[in-house]
Design a protein around this nucleic acid. Structure first.
Lengths: 97, 97
DNA sequence: ACTATAGGCAAGTAGCGACTTGCGTATGGT
DNA sequence: ACCATACGCAAGTCGCTACTTGCCTATAGT
């Protein structure tokens, strides 16, 4: 559950992937690979990214649909919404000093 | 920075410690140890908890003040507030389907 | 049919991270 | 002065995890 969400967010490369999907949804594995290689200097193998995507997917942060030989990935922010409210006090809801 | 926050949140024991401090602020190391041992069944050594607290402290999630031979720890939720908004889309701000 | 593309599976390696163990330091009580 | 308490430091062990490498499957194009 939220257990996997925290573990998924622990890795900086996975967070970069989420950034990439937040910027442009529906990318394939190869697109994400080349984007990460170009925009950031991450020279990671295809399998590395694939495994990261698997972790993100089992955490529910990434949804994928397969079409032909392409697999498109999209970001799902639902699991992110309430993982932190667990510690946030009900007082000072937004900006009430 | 936020790098350390995610790493700090990755461990379930550290999240338990945050829970404990959220429930009662200003606990010492021994208090946290015995609380974790009793309420949850974590039979961890003192140093284990101490190292976890060090991680949480360097992430800015826990602040500590020393008084005599006691060191009191308190929760700081500031670093938690904006780590997730990075991926949350500006649409559907709270509950607007 | 053949080749290239997009991706998956599995085993192996290296390094980090959680935890322990042992010893050391400082404060407080008597 | 003595001892117990509350905590810190340092090294060592063990398991997990990120990453690679090699091979395999399936779809698309020609």
């Amino acid at each position: 559950m939220t257990e996997d969400v925290f573990k998924a967010l622990a890795d900086p490369t996975r967070r970069r992937i989420l950034d990439e999907l937040a910027e442009r949804d529906g990318q394939t594995l190869f697109e994400i690979c080349s984007r990460l290689a170009i925009k950031h200097d991450l020279g990671l193998s295809r399998q590395a990214i694939s495994q990261h995507l698997a972790v993100l997917e089992s955490a529910g942060l990434v949804l994928s649909r397969r079409e032909g030989r392409y697999k498109f990935h999209e970001l799902n922010t639902r699991p992110l919404e309430h993982i932190v409210t667990r510690w946030l006090r009900p007082d000072t809801p937004e900006g009430t000093p």
